[in-house]
């Protein structure tokens, strides 16, 4: 019988209302996903904070590494022409 130490960690995501995406709210341990869902309901939506819940095993998430964040995200840094504010528009021209 696996004890509590073996219960996987689940990350919990809540859609707070229709029209919004799910957002991460926290995590919890549970023996399986169904139980994680029930516990997440009790822990993270006691005051009607959500209309939909996702639980994802933390081990299933692949994340970018904080150590490589410069090399990983820097390529976007010098491409300011991707933003509308980069462009000069003559005065008086509207709807642009």
């Amino acid at each position: 019988m696996p004890d509590r130490r073996d219960w996987p960690l689940f990350e919990v995501f809540v859609r707070s209302r229709r029209g919004l995406s799910h957002a991460h709210v926290g995590s919890l341990h549970a023996p399986d996903a169904q139980m994680a869902l029930r516990n997440a309901r009790d822990v993270y939506t006691r005051r009607q904070e959500g209309v939909s819940l996702w639980v994802v095993e933390a081990a299933a998430i692949t994340a970018s590494s904080p150590e490589e964040k410069d090399a990983f995200f820097d390529p976007a840094g010098d491409k300011i022409y991707r933003h509308p504010t980069f462009y000069d528009i003559p005065e008086g021209v509207e709807h642009l």
Partner: peptide, 25 residues
């Protein structure tokens, strides 16, 4: 409801501590 909240607060905080590489158990 209040006592249940306290249990919930404990869980939020154990989860926060676990992000620092310790185990709740």
């Amino acid at each position: 409801a209040k006592v249940q909240d306290e249990a919930g607060h404990g869980l939020y905080l154990y989860a926060a501590a676990e992000t620092l590489g310790v185990d709740r158990a």
